[in-house]
Design a protein around this nucleic acid. Structure first.
Lengths: 416, 416
DNA sequence: TCAATAATAAATAAGAGTGATTTATTTATT
DNA sequence: AATAAATAAATCACTCTTATTTATTATTGA
């Protein structure tokens, strides 16, 4: 039918906070998402592969995938010959199948990113400030959206599936630390930023914790896709985290799951402190500032910090100890398969940090636990913005999705 | 049709470790479990209530509930008059709808319990020992099963839906601490106790971590049913825990989620130790033994410890501090709604402990977190055995169930 | 070596079966 | 008369089963 338009909105009222019954359209929706999730995970799959993997009949898979192809979400690739029997026709995601926009609102800058159905970045915009304000942010999004959309043709524009905002939990509680006036802080507290941005868009707008979003990006676009569950740390100006359970991003009832920055860890004097006070880039900046070293390039040049010297070594050592402790504590709550660490830092620093964490984990008493492997993140500095964009992607097209994440978006009723 | 027999076995091969498609029978199964879960949670509900709550059509609910009634799982109660319109007929769980057996294997004793569909204990058997052995345990179950079943008539006997074993994770790693010979330890390591007991039963046998099981009992039978998620501590000879997420018991990929006894907490000298070293009854026993006080009644008389004196006060204070710390750490991983504490102790001690924990939580820096309320468990000392029995109940009749818990049971193919 | 045939696997059309929904009706109450 | 619960009958959507078509490789026999 009309493969040129993506319809927004939920299939049902979805009012119930708890338990919903299932019907046929729910069943079909589930199976469609399952197919898309598997194709995304494996790059491309033939209908017969999907049938084997899902336990669905070949005919059912045939019907579903033909429809997804007609909808412009899947494209058939060159038949694979060389095996007995009719050659199989692998099907892959159509990069132009859908587009998603991610917005990261951070302490020093905002980012707006447009990605395609494969997660490739089509364009990206930056906006720097000393501290974020609601008005400026909305204005940035308004002009930014126009610019992003101008790079898409009419068909592509019609296939934007949503926008996701990645923003720190209760931004207003730390904004003053950035030297912002009190009014600015209060403006954030009382502003429904999601609604403001929703007013600029004809597609659904979602909002989620920034570190949880980064975790979502790692799950959907990163190499962590093969992991069933992992705990994720994003080390930015502050430290935050995310949780993936059974292939689903778990945002938590209040949207504050994975608040790993607030994890109590032993402090320098033996008394407990919070992870954020030992493993955040703000700590490194403060150390450098105390030595009289100008450190603004930590924020402006995350790909290359240049030569920092012994302060960096000390920071890595201390942050790694704290992270290791947090990983063990988290593993006693959930038996994670892996701990993934990423952040606003050069990849070389990230690698050193992860190596140090892996060593430090081994020094902690973990009797009775099966410790997760410690891994580097694979998405990198833009994980939060990409994670924002991954929100509508997960919500619409992937299994499990963000039903439990506390993510919110505006409901529309389906046309017809 | 045949409402006198409970059929065991899964609807499909269920081989796939990851992603399965859904079909109509899966849809119906889901909706049936949903109905049973809601009725259990609310005591009794009319068909029209269920329709409103689930979003299913009245007709669908009518069909499903009539079938559940014919299957002997639901019973209709007295019509409710006094409101406009036809009186509604509430339906409740039939106590004789199904029976479940729970087996707890502990450090000093085993328990076997038979419960009905409502969770009421129909009979209970104890077996004490200095340390558990595989042979003695199987023999206890063999004779115990006969005894339990002899109290049921033929129809009831046919409606036993399963047996759940609640046993410490890797029992053999701490059995020697109980003074057991090495052979006994190795026997547990190499024995598939689930299979041994399965051989005695014509219904499925499940196995799960004992503290996770206790948590399941609290979720299914306790007053925590209204909570969407909580973290649970069971303070026995050792300390363990369980996790409930979105109404589901989360056992974890390896079955070791909620290993809260291994949570690192600050030790007396400031250096980290494990929760189990501060908040377990073994610690209290050791303290008493060091004072020359005979303390075996801690194990044998959990309803009443008599007068212990200042050692108990000190233990409560220290255990509460450690538990508070663990609760805050757990809350930075998952934004739990509540922390529930239960254990092998008199209710008066439990109350004092919980009060002390609630106070201690307030003394910990928890910026950036929304702390859970601290609550007493409502199931009590037999939570582990009851939790074992709750396993087949959840598995067969409740939503979400234990698909993620690492619980295992034998598959049978459905007849015809 | 080359054609003919067998075996295998992918894909799908047609029809059957299942379960939820819609619509209309009955019943019991205020 | 209005309202609400309950359900029968008809309809609709989706998956499953069965049978068929198609494309390929493997095997056989001259």
């Amino acid at each position: 039918m009309d493969g040129d338009v993506i319809r927004h909105g939920s299939r049902e009222a979805a009012t119930g906070p708890l338990h919903r019954g299932t019907n046929q359209s729910g069943m079909r929706a589930h199976n469609e998402r399952l197919v898309l999730s598997l194709v995304r995970q494996h790059g491309s799959l033939a209908k017969s592969d999907i049938a084997r993997m899902t336990g669905l009949s070949a005919q059912t898979v045939s019907v579903i995938m033909r429809e997804l192809e007609a909808d412009g979400l899947l494209v058939r690739q060159a038949p694979v010959r060389g095996r007995i029997g009719q050659p199989s026709v692998p099907m892959a995601l159509d990069p132009d199948g859908a587009f998603f926009i991610g917005l990261k609102i951070g302490r020093r800058s905002a980012e707006l990113v447009l990605i395609d159905f494969l997660g490739s970045v089509r364009s990206m915009l930056h906006h720097s400030y000393r501290y974020p304000t609601t008005g400026e942010t909305v204005a940035f999004v308004a002009t930014g959206l126009k610019e992003l959309r101008s790079g898409l043709d009419a068909r592509q524009n019609g296939r934007i599936a949503g926008l996701g905002i990645a923003m720190p939990f209760e931004l207003w509680n730390w904004i003053d630390a950035a030297g912002a006036p009190r009014e600015v802080m209060d403006a954030w507290r009382h502003c429904d930023i999601r609604a403001e941005i929703q007013a600029l868009c004809d597609f659904p707008v979602h909002l989620q914790n920034d570190a949880t979003s980064a975790c979502g990006a790692e799950m959907v676009f990163g190499q962590a896709a093969s992991l069933r569950d992992f705990v994720y740390f994003y080390i930015g100006a502050f430290a935050g985290g995310g949780i993936v359970l059974d292939g689903r991003l778990y945002g938590g009832r209040t949207g504050n799951a994975g608040a790993l920055g607030s994890m109590p860890v032993p402090g320098p004097d033996g008394r407990p402190t919070q992870l954020i006070d030992r493993a955040s880039i703000a700590v490194l900046e403060r150390t450098l500032a105390a030595r009289g070293i100008e450190a603004s390039h930590l924020w402006t040049s995350p790909q290359d910090w240049g030569d920092i010297g012994p302060e960096l070594d000390a920071w890595i050592a201390d942050a790694a100890d704290a992270l290791a402790y947090a990983i063990v504590a988290a593993s006693s709550v959930i038996d994670f398969e892996a701990a993934v660490i990423d952040g606003w830092m050069p990849t070389a620093v990230r690698r050193r940090l992860v190596e140090a964490v892996a060593k430090a984990v081994g020094r902690i008493d973990a009797e009775g636990l099966k410790l997760p492997v410690v891994r580097e993140g694979t998405v990198g500095i833009h994980a939060r913005a990409l994670g924002g964009a991954s929100l509508p992607l997960s919500e619409r097209f992937l299994l499990g999705a963000t039903a439990l994440t506390g993510a919110t978006h505006m409901e529309e009723s389906r046309p017809s």
